[in-house]
């Protein structure tokens, strides 16, 4: 089963899935059903949370799972 995911972040960054670049922020991407560790490119580690470790299931292309990362320094 195919699943759909959108990772939200203020700027365009590589989305890393299970340890490798696998998409872009703010754009819907497709993943396989199952557990995934989702984070952003480690080149600029100024984001939080560090990662999402979750089961991705039950999504649709018009209702993707939304994961939001924020800037670590936001509001400081």
């Amino acid at each position: 089963m195919d699943q759909y995911l959108k990772v939200v972040f203020p700027t365009r960054r590589h989305v890393w899935i299970d340890g490798a670049p696998a998409g872009w922020t703010n754009k819907v991407c497709q993943v396989e059903t199952g557990h995934h560790v989702v984070t952003l490119s480690p080149t600029h580690p100024n984001f939080q949370p560090e990662q999402f470790d979750l089961l991705v299931t039950g999504t649709r292309p018009d209702a993707p799972l939304i994961l939001e990362f924020t800037r670590k320094d936001a509001g400081t």
Partner: peptide
């Protein structure tokens, strides 16, 4: 992975 390359446009 072809899917990764597709997601990465």
């Amino acid at each position: 992975s072809v899917l990764r390359k597709i997601n990465l446009e």
